[in-house]
Amino acid sequence: MSQADVRRRVSSRFLTSELRLIAVRRRNQVGLAALAAVPVVLAVAMKVASPEGPPDRGDGPNFFSQILGNGFFVALAALGVELTLFLPIAVSMLAGDAVAGEANQGTLRYLLTVPVGRTRLLAVKYAGIVMGAFVAPLTVAVSGLVVGLLLFGGGDVTTLSGTQIGFGTAVLRLLLICLYLGVCLSALGAIGLFLSTLTEQPMGATIALAMLTVTSWILGQIPQLDWLHPYLLTRHWTDFGELLRDPVSPGGLTPGLLSAGAYIVVFLSAAWARFAGRDVTS
């Protein structure tokens, strides 16, 4: 038998191809541009209007009031605003498309006959989602930082504890915030990957995931459901403000990271259980 001579290489070619596929897709490029546009709109609006008081927007850290004094806060305010819907929608688009999109286009059956093992396919698909989950908040932050510096200038940043930190340190904190949000959004992406294995309609999975995020936010606002709050997906997303305390309390982000980790483990397992033996009839 000549099958024995098949050599399977460990290679990043498929992963690279997946990342490229995501990157060259016009829809994703437009989505990323939209994410980057929000801080610009926000900063320009603040510059033009100079409102008397900060707009009221829920329970997250509120950075609006400080924008006029330091452009750094444009990035933070934009992250806070986009975290409620825009960032989750961006990740939902990627995640919903992951398996369902390939099924919908008929490319799934050809990948599987290459063959790409089903576990490997899920791993690569999830890697693509995770990349998106980190790139999305970073894009918002970079765009916000640039436009903020241009319109309002930089300088030392006042932390939530009232102390001052240098601008360089603050940017480092901003990077950590993006990484934290990347982990949170990766948890969302894991749910999306699972939903994406359930259907051949990528839009269906995307909408379901976006609605799930919104529902989670809403449930988090209802005091009567406080027993449920610790388990909500979005519960700890706004904890990112912890990174703007001085000194940073290391335990502040632990619940959020644990919660995200649990979601990732549970839903990746569910995706695998669902997909590994599923009939691919698309």
Partner: peptide, 23 residues
Amino acid sequence: GPGFHPYLSGRDNLRRLDAADRT
């Protein structure tokens, strides 16, 4: 029937399939 990514060229579609092949 065929199944490919509509927004990739024919060659890029084949590149993707070849990249997916560990052998």
